[in-house]
Structures are given as structure tokens and as C-alpha cells.
Design a binder for these strands. Structure first.
Ligand SMILES: [Mn+2]
Ligand SMILES: [Mn+2]
Ligand SMILES: [Zn+2]
Ligand SMILES: [Zn+2]
Lengths: 140, 140
DNA sequence: TCAAAATTTGTAACGATTACAAAATTATGT
DNA sequence: ACATAATTTTGTAATCGTTACAAATTTTGA
């Protein structure tokens, strides 16, 4: 369980007024760090925040990504997943259980772009396959 | 301009009956290699193939990706782009002109996943930023 | 040539996201 | 604390890309 106060000041420092629902959503992203979709956030927080609107979740995530306190992952075509870890790291999506796993990765492990004059502000590296747990079960 | 016959035999070799519209769509992907969306393919080929249905473009691309003669790119959340180059290579998406650029990349330049027991079957590496041409124009 | 199989088409359905205006909440100045 | 202005949230409708589906067309191959 993370301290509310930490999240509030973190949001404030990033130009986001730390309204209660925003704090809860950021807290959810940080604590679960499960790369949730909007629907996952909405349906799970609905218990904790009765009357929460899905539009608010959309608005908040749009705000978070524009302020760079969260990153949108486009691994699959039919869903956007969100991550409060904005440092460069790799992702693995299991095509059996649909889980998204993090793995550590330094920026300098990734190849530089061999094109002159291009400025890069986002690096995305993700893999698809079958995770160890699903393989042990004989799936995939 | 690529020879029809080459494309027909290529499709045939990959278990795809080389029907005229499929040949045209594959030819479009190969010749333009512009990572088009379904809409781009549809609206541009409509001139050449009157009466073409967008559903056919969807069906054909689904077939192509399932037979692994094309790859779907999920760089942006609201559009799928298609690539007839199925070899491992990197992509750069310019957030000013929306262009998608290729860059070469060997599989062994990409970091291995530091997780035990995971089996990987797809590698995706893409960057976002501003391309040289847009930077020269002072944009971004 | 002819019937069976596969493909294409057009339309409707679907699901995720966005637009928008009214209601509620929060911030500001007194 | 109060009034007021600004911001945020809500609920619904609209939008957009994609998929489902059945009828029409084309292809296959005996
Ligand atoms: Mn992550
Ligand atoms: Mn490419
Ligand atoms: Zn798994
Ligand atoms: Zn550009």
C-alpha cells in the first residue's frame, strides 16, 4: 500500500492537480503494475469509487500520458494498456494467458537508429510468445 | 513495377491461392512499402479495382498475416499498418508527418529476454519522434 | 460443362474511444 | 465562510475501425 501523500505530490510536481479520482487511478497503476486496459481499471475501481464514470478513466489516462506520468502500450491491436513505469523497459505478452510481463532493459542495450537527423523520444521493445508458466502447463 | 508472375508464385508457395485482388494487394504492399492502413489500401486500389470492397481488403490482410506473408504493426492505438517485409527490422513513426520509416536491424542486435523459460516468437522494436525532413522544416 | 468449394460483396452489428453539454466539484478572491 | 469562476465529472450519443454474416459471384477441378 502506497502513501496517498506521495502520489499527490508526485502528480502535483507534474502539473496535474491531484484530485481524488486521479490519485486512485495512479495508485492503481503503481500498485498493481499489471498493464491494465481502461476496462480493467474502470471495473475494478468501481467497487472502491462508486459512481465512477468510464469517461473519467479515459480522460485521466489521456492526461497522464500527455503529462508523461504514464505510458500507453500498443501491443495488441484491440486494446491499449497503461503503465505508470515510464522508464525504458521491455515487455513480453503471452499469447496464451494474455499476461504482460516487464523485463529490465537499459536504453543503451537497444540499437541506435541508423538514420541521420531523426530525433527519438520514445523507445518501444516488446516480444510475443508463451510465458514460462503457460509452457509448464503444456500450453502453447 | 514488379512482375505479376513473381507475386502469384510467391503467394502460391505460401498456401494462398493467387486470386487477382490478392495479387494486387500484395503488389501494393511490396511496391509502395509505405506501411499502409486498410483504408489507404482500399481507397487507392479502388481506382484500379472498381467495385473493390473494404471487407475484401480486411479479409486479405487477415489471410496474409495468418500465412505470415505480411506483418501487422501496432504502433498507434487507432490504426493497424501492414508490412510485406516480414524480416526483422525496426520502425520509426514520425509524430509530425505520421510517416513510418524502416531501419535495418539484425535479430542479434536486440537484447535477449532475461526471463527463464519464456519462448519468443515475435520481436517488435519501434521508435517514435520526429523525422529529419520534419525537423529541417522546423516542426516538432 | 457443371456442381461444389471458395471468395467477394454489402450491410448490419460490434466494441473501443471520443464529443459534448449538463451537473458536480474544486479553486479563488473577498 | 461565501460567492463566483474555473475545472472536472458524468451520462449519453456519436464516431470510427473492425468483424459477422448471408447472398451473390467467381474459381476449382472432376
Ligand atoms: Mn511495464
Ligand atoms: Mn517495415
Ligand atoms: Zn502465459
Ligand atoms: Zn516527419
Amino acid at each position: 500500500m502506497i502513501d496517498d501523500t506521495k502520489i499527490k505530490s508526485f502528480l502535483g510536481q507534474n502539473g496535474i492537480s491531484p484530485l481524488p479520482k486521479r490519485v486512485k487511478i495512479m495508485q492503481y497503476l503503481i500498485e498493481k503494475h499489471n498493464h491494465p486496459t481502461v476496462d480493467m481499471i474502470y471495473s475494478e475501481l468501481l467497487h472502491e469509487i462508486p459512481g465512477l464514470s468510464k469517461t473519467t478513466v479515459y480522460n485521466t489516462l489521456k492526461l497522464f500520458t500527455s503529462k508523461r506520468v504514464a505510458v500507453a502500450l500498443n501491443i495488441e491491436d484491440n486494446e491499449i494498456r497503461y503503465d505508470a513505469d515510464t522508464a525504458t523497459h521491455g515487455h513480453f505478452k503471452c499469447r496464451v494467458c494474455d499476461g504482460v510481463f516487464d523485463f529490465s532493459l537499459d536504453r543503451d542495450q537497444l540499437p541506435e537508429i541508423p538514420l541521420n537527423g531523426f530525433s527519438v523520444d520514445e523507445y518501444h521493445y516488446y516480444l510475443k510468445g508463451v510465458c514460462s508458466s503457460c509452457r509448464e502447463k503444456g500450453l502453447g
